[in-house]
């Protein structure tokens, strides 16, 4: 069992966890992920490690409640335990001094791109961060990002913070202002990464994306996470998770991510019903007392 040291919501439906994991904390590098199970009948899900502290022996993950497992996970508090936790998995991010590095992120991807932005800065790059969100309340980690990069730019779909528009609009603004990115790292929802890759392909700017695929073991044994990159099948867990965004077949990956949509809805419904029963039972006990 793996103890949760700290748990707090950092945006609606988005929770940050510090988890006791000394071995993983010691080995983990930017871009790597873990696989966890919440409970003994749970599924195995991959989550990117946002931060870690080797001397204190913890890792930090940021979880957006989307399906049954992540919603269940987000009900856990400090002092609770995870059933299983394994890692660090995947190839670490390749970092070098490219010149100007633009880190584009959306949703919880911002927390995940923080260590890459920091490592990029440490390697000598000029780092510009572009953060996108649906609205102001859903922005996360922009303050931490501001501490490690040269400049942060924000876009929101509704204009409640930063530029009214998408991250691709901000990237266009940058380029129009005369900035020439030497490297772009895009981490976030699949449509965002696909849009960035499409935009930068024409401009011939190298673009790295971090793919999130459905996984089971995470060590190359099952092949659930396969994706097509450059016309070849890769396993995201051992060959990635980072790939050349211009080579990724995003359409196929999108379809693969929706493979269990129906079952996920059923599982979620099942979970909600169980939670309702639990709440009702607790109410009954209270009324009885």
């Amino acid at each position: 069992m793996y103890k949760i040291l700290k748990a707090e919501f950092i945006a609606p439906n988005v929770k940050s966890f510090l988890i006791e994991a000394p071995h993983i904390a010691r080995k983990r590098q930017a871009g790597q992920f873990i696989i966890l199970r919440v409970h003994e009948k749970g599924e195995r899900i991959p989550i990117t490690i946002a931060d870690s502290n080797a001397s204190e022996g913890w890792i930090n993950i940021i979880v957006q409640g989307l399906g049954k497992t992540s919603i269940h996970l987000n009900t856990l508090e400090a002092g609770d335990h995870l059933q299983d936790l394994v890692g660090p998995l995947g190839q670490p991010t390749h970092i070098e001094n490219w010149g100007t590095l633009v880190c584009i992120s959306g949703g919880v991807g911002t927390a995940e791109s923080l260590p890459i932005a920091a490592a990029g800065k440490a390697a000598g790059n000029r780092v510009i961060s572009i953060i996108g969100a649906r609205n102001k309340d859903l922005l996360i980690a922009e303050a931490q990002m501001a501490e490690v990069v040269d400049e942060v730019r924000i876009s929101t779909d509704d204009g409640s913070a930063g530029r009214h528009g998408l991250v691709t609009d901000v990237l266009q603004d940058l380029i129009d202002e005369g900035v020439t990115p030497d490297m772009i790292v895009a981490i976030g929802p699949l449509p965002m990464m696909a849009a960035v890759a499409n935009q930068t392909r024409e401009m011939n700017i190298p673009t790295m994306v971090s793919l999130n695929a459905i996984m089971v073991d995470g060590t190359g044994m099952c092949g659930a996470c396969r994706a097509t990159v450059g016309g070849k099948t890769v396993f995201v867990c051992v060959d990635g998770p980072e790939f050349d965004g211009h080579q990724v077949n995003f359409q196929e990956l999108g379809m693969r991510q929706r493979m269990y949509k129906k079952q996920e809805a059923e599982s979620h419904q099942c979970f909600l019903e169980k939670q309702m029963k639990k709440v009702k039972a607790e109410q009954l006990v209270e009324e009885g007392a």
Binding site: H23, I24, K27, D84, L85, V86, G87, P88, L89, T219
Partner: peptide
């Protein structure tokens, strides 16, 4: 010892 990958965790 489970959840431990030689080559990754150590």
């Amino acid at each position: 010892i489970k959840n431990f990958i030689i080559g990754r965790t150590m």
